[in-house]
Design a protein around this nucleic acid. Structure first.
Length: 254
DNA sequence: GTGATTTGACCATC
DNA sequence: GATGGTCAAATCAC
């Protein structure tokens, strides 16, 4: 869906990555910053190739054909299922997504080199929030994480998340984004560490519930893809997934 | 002391 | 029987 929009947005990302690289070179940024720019450009290039060439099918490790039973196997569990791919420049895991999650399990997945981590909403018990997510490191690129959101957030966090999505969209429409200045505090920290220009976050948030297993992604309602926090950015949409819906309002509805 | 993470075991589905 | 998802006790971190 929205192939043309996706392609144009990816091209824009690539252009921005190139511009960023040029600026980093011009301004004598630290070597680490230049390395990150290179990684960013490579990641964007991979996304473009994945989106354009492979029909999006084999972009992930064993997804479309790797876990055929992964589609809400529990009886009557017709839950919203949203899959995104996020990237992190850190090796500790993807960045914060503004929601608080509690890890409740981890499994080695057949055919996957990395285990899959299972998270549920921290407020599951107190507020009955049924949202869960699964995070798995991509086989092809350890800095990429496949994140699957299952179910809707019914807790108060939706109040923080939705404005974030909306503002993010508005920001992209109004001005060109600058990598490394995303809203999330981890990314902001990185930006500061790299001495890059930092703008005021659109929506301050930080839910570092689990430093070793946090992630970050933003979902853009209009374009139907995820723009990712934390310098690295990547995303994935999987048309083969019958359960795939990309309606944030559905994601966070009570 | 409290809350989060780890990890083995159990259960459901195919 | 194999596999994925969840539970719960033990452990760890703050």
């Amino acid at each position: 869906m929205e192939d043309t929009g996706l392609a144009s947005e990816l091209e824009r990302l690539q252009a921005l990555a190139m511009e960023l690289g040029a600026r980093v070179d011009d301004e004598g940024a630290p070597a680490a910053a230049r390395e990150l720019c290179g990684a960013l450009a490579a990641s964007v290039d991979r996304v473009i190739r994945l989106a354009a060439g492979s029909n999006g099918g084999n972009a992930g490790p064993g997804k479309s054909n790797g876990h055929p039973r992964n589609s809400c196997r529990k009886a009557g569990a017709a839950k919203t299922r949203t899959q995104v791919r996020v990237a992190s420049v850190q090796d500790t895991g993807p960045l914060n997504d503004g929601l608080s999650w509690r890890k409740y399990g981890q499994k080695d997945i057949l055919g996957a080199p990395y285990p899959r981590a299972y998270f549920r909403c921290t407020h599951r018990n107190t507020r009955g929030c049924q949202a869960t997510k699964q995070v798995q490191r991509a086989a092809a690129d350890p800095l990429l994480f496949d994140v699957v959101y299952i179910g809707a957030h019914t807790c108060a966090q939706q109040g923080a998340a939705l404005p974030l999505l909306i503002n993010r969209e508005q920001e992209q429409q109004q001005q060109p984004p600058v990598f490394g200045q995303e809203q999330g505090s981890p990314a902001a920290t990185e930006a500061q560490t790299l001495s890059w220009p930092v703008v005021e976050p659109v929506t301050p948030f930080s839910f570092p519930s689990s430093p070793g297993a946090i992630d970050g992604c933003y979902m853009l309602p209009s374009s139907g893809y995820a723009a990712i926090d934390g310098l690295g950015l990547d995303m994935e949409y999987e048309p083969q997934l019958d359960e795939f819906f990309f309606d944030p309002s559905e994601l966070f509805q009570p």
